[in-house]
Nucleic acid binder design. Structure first.
Lengths: 100, 100
DNA sequence: ATCGTATATCGTCGATATACGATGAAAGGT
DNA sequence: ACCTTTCATCGTATATCGACGATATACGAT
């Protein structure tokens, strides 16, 4: 059971921006970060970072929880793993409809 | 030597559209297709398909050659392989700055 | 109650993306 | 020479993205 093509496109689009890639790397390194910390590691306004996080959240690439007055975003490794595998299969799938 | 973050974003953006994902799958299955054939497998105008192919070409995800009056686009498996690997590393890279 | 901190959302605006039809170039066939 | 096929590019209309500042919300501290 793979992702449908629309869902794949949403996830890929969520990653298709340098700022969001940086955020994802940061999350991968620290597992979870609050927004203020991510604002510190990028040179973007807080509202812009929140917007990027919303994009990642909608694509299910991160988890979200609040703790006290802070919001914590955590990387969703399962989804990354699946996306990576599907990308790998995508270009290897050279034999649909033939016998090799 | 990995791709820089801008290049990663360009490649991911090139894949972040259902029509281009379908085109890529078609190319993966048949290795190479001419434009007319790809127009037949999508429900888009020929000019739109050409535009999508240009996007994939700029991201180095496909090769291009002309043969007779046709243009052939071929999947670049090397680039897909690298992108897939980097995506895989991205979310696994939990240990930058520690010893594990 | 008020203040300060952390975050989300809104409104705006320029830039980019996406779709189409029209047009033109290249090459093959008659 | 002329027509057809195949494709790229241009022009245009519309939608979405990406950035910011301003504002709203939530909550802990004083």
């Amino acid at each position: 059971m793979g992702l449908d093509i629309e869902n794949q496109a949403v996830k890929l689009a969520a990653l298709a921006h340098p700022a969001r890639l940086k955020i994802v790397r940061q999350l991968a390194n620290e597992n979870a970060c609050c927004v203020k910390h991510l604002v510190g590691t990028t040179d973007l306004a807080q509202s812009t970072v929140s917007q990027h996080l919303k994009t990642l959240l909608k694509a299910d690439l991160v988890f979200y929880r609040t703790e006290k007055q802070a919001s914590w975003y955590e990387i969703n490794r399962e989804e990354f793993s699946q996306l990576s595998k599907e990308l790998d299969l995508m270009f290897k799938d050279c034999c649909k409809g033939c016998d090799c």
